[in-house]
Design a protein around this nucleic acid. Sequence first.
DNA 1: CACCTTATGACAACGTCATTGACGTGTGAA
DNA 2: TTCACACGTCAATGACGTTGTCATAAGGTG
Lengths: 238, 238
Amino acid sequence: MAERVVPERQRRRRRPTRQGVVLSRQLIVDTALRLVAQHGAEALTVRRLGAALGADPSAIYRYFRNTDDLLLALADELIGRAQHGWRPTGDWRADLREIGLRIHRAYQAHPQAALLAAHRTTGRTHETRAVEAILGVLRRAGFPAPEAVRVYHAFVDQSLGFAALDAAALALPAAAQAADREVWQADYGRLPADTHPHIAATAPQLAAEMRRSGYPYALELLLEAVAARLPGPAGRAD
Amino acid sequence: MAERVVPERQRRRRRPTRQGVVLSRQLIVDTALRLVAQHGAEALTVRRLGAALGADPSAIYRYFRNTDDLLLALADELIGRAQHGWRPTGDWRADLREIGLRIHRAYQAHPQAALLAAHRTTGRTHETRAVEAILGVLRRAGFPAPEAVRVYHAFVDQSLGFAALDAAALALPAAAQAADREVWQADYGRLPADTHPHIAATAPQLAAEMRRSGYPYALELLLEAVAARLPGPAGRAD
DNA sequence: CACCTTATGACAACGTCATTGACGTGTGAA
DNA sequence: TTCACACGTCAATGACGTTGTCATAAGGTG
């Protein structure tokens, strides 16, 4: 078994499966995302993916080296969907905000997949395009290369970190998800003021706040601090 | 099978295993962390944990309902270790910085476990103590309850998000980890200036920057923005 | 010290998982 | 029309989490 996987470009014979489906990397990726969206991350197994495709599970290994290879393809697909149709407006702050929220949104749309994919560096086309776009926004804003790179790093990892964190919450089974929310209402709501005065004093706000994502606010904080560091008179000369 | 797990408090008979080990929740948690540190997250299986303990795998189910229950215990243990020995100094900014870096450090020390645990809300003792401490720092700094809660949320989730992200990188098998670093040097280093001008212009800095964690810088940005929002004359009156 | 209850460790089994080697069939080129 | 081989299928392997059952030793009781 030298190499089971044939590069997509040089595929010629496309034999349909017993159930009449013609396989391809794209079809497998799409089906995997759909599967994960419908039945959760734990439904993403080679066997079930095979069933969903109408093919023998082992057929997938003709297109992906292993499940990790498939996972990287899912990750890059998500990045691609986040970027789809985006154009810079020239307002660096609005552009960064939009990119950040798009990444977050794209991952929330497939929480189960995001959970698996957010931590990976794919180095594939969609990813490099995104990196180029963000660096472009920062450098056009007037940041010198070293600062632009530092801000890029903080910005991207903040977005991905929150995306993964929030995806994880959404990815929990419905019951566990409700239980998690309950913790803030019940558990934290009942802590006595003498042992936990600050929690007791803010319990209602806490319960309300922890229901949403902390990302939009954290993103604003980051953008604010970055703006304060822009070289030139009071943030942008032109 | 009403309930297999007996609460730790009311355990009396501690029968040693065939290999002479006396089990307990704490011993199991410690062993699990050691296992994960030595052999990676994928080594954390009930069967191998049993072997590492010198016990039959099924004995673990006398102490934890299932692997998820065990995972939450690991998560709370990590939070506890991060907090261990911390005392507020009265300087809110230094205190938050210290807490943030401690969380990050504690999780990096057990990347494999962090990866599994960072997204969970345990609601257990160590966690509530940490929440109380952070809210205390913010309220003593002068933030009114609603703002304190918002900042708390952004601060904690940013810390956990980065912790998980950076842990994921450390958690990769050594080979994949080296490959990931290589992507920035080789892959991104070779992109032509006409298709990816901004990457090409910053490639060396990019390769150097992406080698470290983006967290410390992102944390400074957050603290800076938060300081600017402190009520009172130019951030803190006293 | 002997008895009894039962907590708790051990064993065996089930169904599912990713992965792989061997097989044979239908495709597309010649 | 032929023919090589790409690729779908089959079967098997070893590891996984979890559970029902059994048996034994710990520890309270007298």
